[in-house]
Computed example of a mutant assay.
Amino acid sequence: MATDRPNLPLNGLRAFEVAARQGSFTQAAIELRVTQAAVSQQVLRLEDLLGVRLFTRTSSGLVLTDEGLALRPVLTRSFDEMGDVLDRFVGGRYRETLHLGVVTTFAAGWLQERLPAFEAAHPGISIRIFTNNNRIDIAREGLHVAIRFGDGQWPGLFATPLLEAPLTPLCAPQLADSLRVPGDLGAQVLFRSYRADEWRLWFEAAGGAAPDLHGPVLDSSLAMADMAEAGLGVGLLPAVMFARRLGQGRLVRPFAAEVAVGRYWLTRPRSKAPTPAMRLLEAWLCEECAKLSAGPEAA
Rank of each mutant, 00 (worst) to 15 (best):
L185G: 08
G183C: 09
F130N: 09
V102F: 04
I30L: 15
L49E: 11
A29P: 01
L49W: 01
S40Y: 00
R114Q: 10
V252M: 13
H214T: 14
L266T: 10
E297V: 12
E81T: 12
F149S: 05
Q188L: 12
M241G: 04
H99Q: 15
A257I: 11
E31F: 08
F89I: 15
D226W: 11
R140P: 03
L218W: 08
M227V: 04
S271A: 15
R270W: 10
K291G: 03
I138G: 05
P216S: 10
A117S: 11
A298H: 08
V63T: 05
L285G: 03
E297N: 08
G247L: 13
A294H: 08
A256V: 14
G231H: 06
A2I: 11
H99V: 08
Q153N: 12
Y94D: 06
V63K: 01
F255N: 12
W110H: 04
L281E: 04
Q41M: 09
R200Q: 14
C171V: 11
R245G: 07
P166S: 03
F191I: 07
A225Q: 06
F242M: 07
P254D: 13
R93H: 11
G231Y: 05
W202P: 04
M1A: 14
G186I: 09
Q27G: 04
A37P: 01
L280R: 12
V181E: 14
G231T: 06
P216H: 06
L115W: 06
L44C: 03
P269V: 11
L285W: 05
C171H: 04
F203V: 06
L167P: 01
H122M: 06
P9M: 03
P116Y: 07
S78Q: 11
P155R: 15
R195W: 12
I30W: 12
G68L: 03
L143F: 02
Q42H: 05
A121S: 08
A29Q: 01
G207R: 06
A121T: 02
F25E: 00
P216F: 09
A196S: 14
F158H: 15
C289F: 01
L98A: 03
Q112Y: 14
R93E: 13
F130T: 13
L64N: 00
